[in-house]
Each structure stands twice: as C-alpha cells, then as structure tokens.
Nucleic acid binder design. Structure first.
Lengths: 144, 144
DNA sequence: TATTGTTATACTCTATAACTATA
DNA sequence: TATAGTTATAGAGTATAACAATA
C-alpha cells in the first residue's frame, strides 16, 4: 500500500491538472480558448505556414484552418499567400494579437503563484530533474 | 536574455504538454476520450452521484450527464437512482469499465518512460518540490 | 501528378437556460 | 419552494475525406 511511486504519480497528475486549469482560465480571461492562446504563442517568434503550425501543434491541418480563421476574424492574426508559392499561406500575429497574448500571460498566475514558492536553488534543482525526464530518446543514443 | 526562470517555465510547459499528450494517446488507445478516462478514474475508489462528479471534475452537471450517458451506452458505468432520494443518481464503474481503465493505464507510458528515468532519490526530491508548489493557500495559514 | 490548404461533415467537450421529477 | 439531474441548444476543438488551387 501507499507505494512512493504512486504518490509521485498522483502529485504529477495534480500538478499538471493545476497547470492546465490555470492556463485555460488565463486564456478565457483574455477572451480566447487555450488552443487559440497556444497558437498565438507559437507566432510570437515569427510567422508560420499553416503546415508548420499543424506540425508544431501536433494536430490536423484542417484544424489549423479553423483556428486561424477564428483568430483572423478577431483581427489577432494575418494570413497572406506566399508570393513565391501561392499555395502556401503565411500566418503572423498582429498588434492586437500581441496585446491578447500579453493579457493571457499577465493572467497566467501559475509560474509566480506556484513555481514562485520555490527558492532559486530549488528552482534550479527542479529544472535539472525536468531536463532529465524530457531529454529525447535516450534508448537510441548511439554508443560508439 | 535567457532568464533562468523563463527556462524553467518553458521546461514546465514542455513537461505538461508531454504528459497531456501521453494521457490522451493512452485514452484513445482504449477507445476513450481523456474526459471519459478521467471520469472512470474518479469512480475507481467508489461510486459517485452526478453532482459529486461535477464537483470533482470541475465542470457543469449537464456535462456530466452527457459523459455518463456515453459511458453508460458503452457499458462502462452504471447509473441507478438512490432509493433514499430518488432525485439522486449514483454512478459506479462496471467490470467492463475497470477493464477499459486498466487498458488506459497500461498504455499510459509517461510514468515509466519519463519519471522512470529518475533515480529513487531524485524521485523523492521531485516529490518534495511538487509538494511545495501544490500546498494549498499558504497565504491564509493561521499564524497563532 | 504531388502538395498546400480549404470545405463538408461528424463527433466530442463544454456551458447556459429551460425543464422534470422529487423532496 | 428548493434541489438533482436532464434536455435543448449552441460554440469550440478535433479528425477524416473530398476538394480546389498551385506547383
């Protein structure tokens, strides 16, 4: 009974649950769904094609079409055909989109309210532990 | 540039993202949505009324009605009126529901594939850090 | 002919408001 | 009259399949 690994699993579940709920609340406070807020986040570093967005968001292209159409309707993104290949559409965030994104991040209290409880040293330690869990494909690291 | 807190925030985002994706894949592998799998999880420890489920899942009662109706249609839960107060419906998991839930948990590889990379000592350390972030309402702990 | 993106459609999640049955 | 749950309805996320435009 009361396996320590089960306890950790439950804590991780609770942590993820709290994180998701906080992000969703923050998005809604800015009038967005979390999927929309997430898409805007991906445009912060620069424009994307529809296909790139689908790959980054791990979803179908038809879904991206819908999300972008809604955001475009609200003036939060632009979608323009690439002059070099007119099949391709480049999506970029507008000023209004940046404003909405800032609003989400201002309302997203998880980092300060939760992670902020940790000391700097604890944050470094957490960062190391997370890095270990997230490292890609340790199975197939070449041995030679 | 490259604030360590920002780096931690990004890692937490990636961690949560990987967790959510893994749970969703596992649920789908068992023919369920993640909302359905989550509801089944809440019934493992015993039956619940519709209202209790709504409170635990942090969603509207009408949503629970729909989720339970689908699960009941698939034979994964039972819904019976409480004899003492016939307005109340008690929902419980069936044997088939337990089977589906086991299938989800077998397919849910995040704990072993990710958390399993940590040594026991690291897992204990992570557990302590998570406990600190999750502790309820430190603001209003009575001081007397 | 292959590729990019869109449209049509369908299913699920979720909420609000109006409703039924019971207390 | 108040409460537990359901129904009707609507908006959003998501996917599949068929399609249009372009290369």
């Amino acid at each position: 009974m009361s396996d320590p690994a089960d306890h950790l699993n439950q804590q991780v579940w609770d942590f993820v649950y709290a994180y998701d709920a906080a992000y969703d609340r923050a998005a809604r406070a800015a009038g967005l769904s979390s999927a929309q807020a997430c898409l805007l986040d991906h445009l912060e570093s620069g424009s994307r094609t529809m296909g790139e967005l689908a790959a980054e968001l791990l979803c179908d292209a038809s879904n991206v079409t819908q999300l972008v159409s809604r955001l475009e309707g609200g003036g939060l993104v632009d979608r323009v055909p690439d002059p070099a290949d007119r099949r391709v559409k480049r999506v970029s965030i507008t000023q209004a989109g940046r404003g909405a994104r800032r609003e989400v991040h201002r309302a997203f209290d998880f980092p300060t309210a939760r992670l902020g409880r940790l000391t700097e040293q604890e944050q470094r330690r957490l960062s190391e532990l997370l890095a270990k869990t997230l490292a890609p494909d340790p199975d197939r690291v070449p041995r030679g």
